[in-house]
Write a protein that binds this DNA or RNA. Structure first.
Length: 213
DNA sequence: GGTTACGGT
């Protein structure tokens, strides 16, 4: 059938997958019948047309896709173990790594409580909102991320990319920022959102922060 | 980007 070779070339253009990830290729004359190939080609056209239509009208599929990002930005109260997420939070403490080895730890809050967090109360300072129970989350940074903590200070608001929830040894929720493969992600996973807030504006900044996250 | 993710007090 005329569309077969076209469908074949498109279907063969799959991205390289990691070891152990199996991809079933649909090719005429191999494991699949001609009708299999036609069905695949039909579905592929249907999907492409649906995407094009959605993009043209501004409704439908493309918006649906946008509403479900692969990795959400979560509040601390919504973080769960083994789930990837991005985070906006304020720095409570910075624990830099000992002499260039290992990892760094940030204590973070966004003033939402998660009962799975360790029940400790750590104040930032007298200019910031009081942090209540289960509002401080430990976040461990590994590998190249560690170098990014040098510029971080208590009280700063930051945006963190690609964290993962984890249960620590004692059963409490914490967050991990593991090493990335791409050079890009290695250097851009921690973003300081604002310059240091003057003390008299700190409470307002915290309120704004709370309503935004 | 992602069927991405390990490790150490």
């Amino acid at each position: 059938m005329g569309t077969s070779s076209n469908a074949q070339s498109r279907l063969l253009g799959t991205a390289i997958k990691p070891p152990g990830y199996r991809v079933s290729l649909i090719r005429p004359g191999h494991d699949h019948s001609a009708s299999d190939v036609e069905v695949a080609a039909f579905l592929r056209r249907w999907w492409a047309d649906a995407l094009a239509k959605a993009a043209a009208t501004g409704t439908g599929l493309s918006n649906l896709v946008k509403e479900q990002p692969a990795r959400p930005t979560l509040k601390i109260c919504d973080i769960k173990p083994n789930v990837f997420f991005d985070l906006c939070a304020q720095i409570v403490r910075v624990y830099s790594p000992a002499a260039g080895s290992g990892q760094a730890v940030l204590l973070l809050t966004d003033y939402t409580a998660n009962q799975s967090l360790k029940d400790e109360i750590v104040a930032i300072d007298e200019h910031h909102l009081p942090i209540q129970r289960h509002m401080v989350m430990s976040c461990t940074l590994w590998d190249s991320h560690v170098s990014q903590v040098a510029d971080l200070r208590t009280g700063q608001h930051i945006y963190l990319r690609n964290l993962r929830g984890k249960v620590d040894r004692d059963g409490f929720l914490e967050a991990m920022m593991h090493g990335e493969r791409s050079d890009d992600a290695k250097k851009t996973s921690v973003f300081v959102l604002d310059a240091a807030e003057p003390a008299d504006r700190a409470t307002a900044a915290n309120d704004r922060f709370k309503s935004n996250v």
